[in-house]
Simulated scan of single mutants.
Amino acid sequence: MKLLRNHHCTAMAMMLVLITHTAGAENATENLDPRIRSLLQQEMRAIEGAMQSVLSAIVRGQHDVVEERGQAIHDSFILAQSLSEEDRRTLRAALPGGFVELDKAFHGLAAELSESGTQEDSAAQLDVFQQMTESCLQCHQTYAPDRFKGLSAR
């Protein structure tokens, strides 16, 4: 139980950083069509909201919510529904390769999170949630340092 509390405190501290900043990798997306950039920013906000609900679900033992929200993050809320194939090609061509790799890894972690919900494994949920949060931090530091000035010194 002490391990769960320690993970919870770490996750809460990381989540506070996310809550106080609305995500949007502006540096990485500054050359995108404004419509696609807006969709990407909507996606980031949707992920932020899902991450908040996941944290709440983890600490409440709501494994079904963790499973569902993890799967929703994995499946990409806005972009998967809103982009044409042409938009996808434009987006892939415009984003740095490292950004794309971080994004793929993040969505892979979301699938792991969903599975940990299915397995009703709170410790795994906390571990994966922390990895996802660290991935967000890494991306913001690398690809949006002007937007997230408080993270640049990390």
Score class of each variant (00 low, 15 high):
residue 1 M to E: 09
residue 4 L to H: 12
residue 7 H to M: 14
residue 7 H to V: 05
residue 8 H to R: 10
residue 8 H to D: 06
residue 10 T to Y: 08
residue 13 A to E: 11
residue 14 M to C: 09
residue 17 V to G: 04
residue 17 V to S: 03
residue 20 T to N: 12
residue 20 T to A: 12
residue 20 T to L: 14
residue 21 H to A: 04
residue 21 H to F: 09
residue 24 G to H: 08
residue 26 E to H: 13
residue 26 E to Y: 14
residue 29 T to S: 15
residue 29 T to D: 06
residue 32 L to D: 00
residue 33 D to Q: 15
residue 34 P to S: 14
residue 34 P to C: 07
residue 35 R to D: 07
residue 36 I to P: 01
residue 38 S to I: 02
residue 41 Q to R: 12
residue 41 Q to V: 12
residue 42 Q to C: 08
residue 43 E to P: 00
residue 44 M to W: 05
residue 46 A to V: 14
residue 46 A to I: 13
residue 48 E to P: 00
residue 49 G to N: 13
residue 50 A to R: 15
residue 52 Q to V: 14
residue 53 S to C: 06
residue 54 V to A: 04
residue 55 L to Y: 08
residue 58 I to Q: 03
residue 58 I to E: 01
residue 59 V to M: 14
residue 63 H to E: 06
residue 67 E to Q: 12
residue 68 E to G: 01
residue 68 E to D: 06
residue 69 R to S: 04
residue 71 Q to E: 06
residue 73 I to H: 00
residue 74 H to S: 07
residue 76 S to M: 11
residue 81 Q to K: 09
residue 83 L to D: 00
residue 84 S to C: 03
residue 84 S to T: 15
residue 84 S to D: 04
residue 86 E to A: 11
residue 86 E to K: 10
residue 87 D to T: 02
residue 87 D to S: 01
residue 88 R to S: 02
residue 88 R to Y: 01
residue 89 R to Q: 12
residue 92 R to C: 01
residue 92 R to Q: 06
residue 94 A to W: 01
residue 95 L to P: 00
residue 97 G to M: 09
residue 98 G to T: 07
residue 99 F to L: 10
residue 100 V to A: 02
residue 101 E to Y: 03
residue 102 L to T: 00
residue 102 L to S: 02
residue 103 D to T: 06
residue 104 K to H: 07
residue 106 F to G: 03
residue 107 H to C: 09
residue 110 A to C: 06
residue 110 A to P: 06
residue 111 A to H: 09
residue 112 E to F: 08
residue 115 E to T: 11
residue 115 E to M: 09
residue 117 G to H: 12
residue 117 G to D: 06
residue 119 Q to Y: 02
residue 119 Q to V: 04
residue 121 D to H: 15
residue 122 S to E: 12
residue 123 A to V: 15
residue 125 Q to I: 08
residue 125 Q to Y: 08
residue 126 L to W: 11
residue 128 V to Y: 07
residue 129 F to Q: 03
residue 129 F to S: 04
residue 130 Q to K: 15
residue 131 Q to M: 14
residue 131 Q to N: 13
residue 131 Q to D: 13
residue 133 T to Q: 10
residue 133 T to V: 04
residue 136 C to Q: 02
residue 136 C to K: 01
residue 137 L to W: 04
residue 137 L to M: 14
residue 138 Q to D: 10
residue 138 Q to S: 13
residue 139 C to I: 05
residue 141 Q to I: 09
residue 144 A to T: 07
residue 147 R to C: 01
residue 147 R to I: 03
residue 148 F to L: 01
residue 149 K to C: 07
residue 149 K to R: 14
residue 152 S to C: 04
residue 154 R to K: 10
